[in-house]
Write a protein that binds this DNA or RNA. Sequence first.
DNA 1: TTGTAGGCGTTATCAG
DNA 2: CTGATAACGCCTACAA
Lengths: 349, 349
Amino acid sequence: MHTTMDDIARECGLSKKTVSRVFADSQSVKQSTRDKVLEAAKRLRYEVNFLARNFNTNRSGFIGIAAPMDALLGGAYFAEVMKGFRRTIPEDSEYIFALFDTNSNSFNNGEKLAKLYRQRRVDGLLAVAMHTHDRFVESLGQIGVPIVVVGEKPANPDACSTICNDEKGIALVCSHLHALGHRRIAFVEGPPEYSSTSRRKQAFVRFARKHALDNPPWYLHQVENWARAGRSAAMSLLKQHPRPTAILTSSDSVAFGVIDGAHALGLRVPEDVSVAGFDNETMAAGYFPPLTTVHQPVCEIAEISARKLLEALDNGTLPAGATTLDPHLVVRESTGKPNPPGRKTSLAR
Amino acid sequence: MHTTMDDIARECGLSKKTVSRVFADSQSVKQSTRDKVLEAAKRLRYEVNFLARNFNTNRSGFIGIAAPMDALLGGAYFAEVMKGFRRTIPEDSEYIFALFDTNSNSFNNGEKLAKLYRQRRVDGLLAVAMHTHDRFVESLGQIGVPIVVVGEKPANPDACSTICNDEKGIALVCSHLHALGHRRIAFVEGPPEYSSTSRRKQAFVRFARKHALDNPPWYLHQVENWARAGRSAAMSLLKQHPRPTAILTSSDSVAFGVIDGAHALGLRVPEDVSVAGFDNETMAAGYFPPLTTVHQPVCEIAEISARKLLEALDNGTLPAGATTLDPHLVVRESTGKPNPPGRKTSLAR
DNA sequence: TTGTAGGCGTTATCAG
DNA sequence: CTGATAACGCCTACAA
C-alpha cells in the first residue's frame, strides 16, 4: 500500500535501521548514505508513518488545548492565547494542537482527560480559562500528565500555571483612583468561576484597608454573570448614600455594564462617577467613554505556558507553582477627579 | 509501565484476543466474560492504548481543521463554524479535532497537508475560509484525502464543499432594494481571496443586467482589504454624478466602512443613501444604523460539512461538488426608499 | 464464544 | 557508521 522503510532500505541496499536513522535525524549517518536515502524517499514518495513511530516512541505528538469552547471561541482572549501558543509551538514543529472542550460532561471530574492521557492521545495539556470548579488538574497531577494552566491558578499549589499578577494590577488602578482623589471606591466582583476574580477582590480589600478608604460593606458587590450584571450592580450601588465616587470591577465586561448603569441613572462618566475595569478587552478602547483598565499580557502568558510544557515534554519535569507576569495600567477617559463635595451632581438636579 | 491487554488477559485467564474484543465492542463475547474483563480493567486502571490501536487500524482518530488562524480566531464566524463541527462530531465521539494554520509557509502548495495525510496524522480535513489561492485541495484530491471545504468553493468542481447560496442572497438584497425604488445601486466588492466574493459580484451584475439598472461601470468598486476600505470606496462613489441611491457590499465589514464613509460626507443612512451588507456579522445588529444584510447559515454549513466528512470516513467516498444552503434577508434600518429625484439631499445643501 | 499465530512499521539493543 | 533481531500492543485471519 504505502511505501515503507523496508522499501527504501531495499532500494538503497541498506538496512531498515539506517533508513530509520536518517528520518529520526540521528547524526550517525554518512552524508552520502543520507543523500541516497532521501533521494529514494522522494522518488518513491515515502513519508514516515507516524502511527508506527508514535506507537513505538509512546508519544502522540499532540498537545491538547483544554478550554470551555462555547465561552471562549468567539473572543479576543482565546485568539491572543492561541497566538502565544503558536508562536512558541509553530506549525512546523513536531507537535500538533488538539482541541478539547472542558464543558463536556465528562470533563470536570477529570475522567475524560485522564483517559486521554492513559490512552496516549495527547502528550501534554494546556488548560485555558480553567474554572475554579474544574477538577481535572487534580486528577491528572496524580498520574503525572504534564499540564500547564494558562491564565488561572488552580487550588493545588503544586500545579503548574502562568498568571497575571492580579494584586499588582488592582494596586495600579486603585493607586490611580486614589491619586485622583477618590476615597469612596466600590468594587464589583464577577462570578467566582475564575480564580482571578477572587484574587482581584482580595487585592482590592487589602488596598481599601491599607489606605483606610471609606468603604462600607455594601460597596462590595458580587454579580452573577458577565452580561448586563454590571449594569444592575451599578444602579443599586449608585443609589446608595454616600455614593461611591468610583467603581472598580474585576473585569471589563462588567465595567461596560457599570457604565451603562450609570448612564441610565443620568450620571456622567467620569464627571459624576469614575469607572475602571480589568483585562483591556478589544471593546475597551472603543467604548463610550473609552475605559480605563488593566492590561493583562495574555499572549505572553500563553507563550510562557507553552514553553514550560515543551520543556516538560523534553525533561519530564514540570516546574511547580505559578509564574506571575506583571500587567500594566491603561488610563483612558472613564476615570477622572471626583466631584468636589459641595458641588451638585447631575443626579441631584 | 502501563497496563496492557496481556495483563488483563492473564488476570482473567483469557486470551488477549477476547480482551481485545471486549474493548473493540464486538458482539461476540459472553456477558459474564465481558463483565469480568471490564471489572479487571477498572481494577488495574487499564485503558486501550490508542497509539497501538491506531497503528494497527491505520487511522489516527484525528480530524484536521485547516484555517487561516490569525484572521479567523477572534471572530464570530469561526466560533459558529466550530459550534457546527462540535455538534456533529461531539467530544465523546471517536474523533478529536486538530488545528492547522493555512497561513504557514508550507501550506499553500499543499505540501504540508499532503504530508499530514501520508504520515497518517489526520484521517480527514475540514478546510475553513479557504483562500482562492490555496492549492491544497488540488494536491490532496490526487492522493485521495477526504477533505471538505467549508463555506467556500474551490476551483476544482469535483472538490467537496458546502456553501451559502450567494446568488440567492444577492438576489434577496437586490430585490429588496429594487422594491424600495432603487435603480442606481453600486456594488463594493471585497478582496478576491475568497471565492464567495466574486460569486456575489457576478450575481449582482446579473441582477443589474436583468433589471436594466442604470449602473455605469464605475458603480463597481473593488477594495483591497476589509478594514476601512469600504469607507474610502463609499467616499469616492458618493462624489460621482449621478450618485448611487444604494450601495451593496459583498460583506458586512465593508458595509460598516461604507456607512462611515457616507456619514463622513454628511450623508444620512438610509435617508440619503441605503447601505446593505452580506454575512450578518455580530456587529451588524448593533451598528448605527443597524445594517440590513444577508444571513449566512454558517453553523449549518459547518454541520453539513462535518457530516459529509464523517460519512466519507465510514464509506471511503466523498460526495463530489458543492452543497448549497439558502441564506435569508435580514432587513434592518440601513435601507429605505431613495430620495425623490427633485428633493435636495443633505449633500447638496 | 474463544484461542493461536502472525503481522503492522517503526525504534532500541547490541553487535560488528 | 551500519546491521540483525527483537520488541511495542493491538488487530485480523483462521481454527477450534
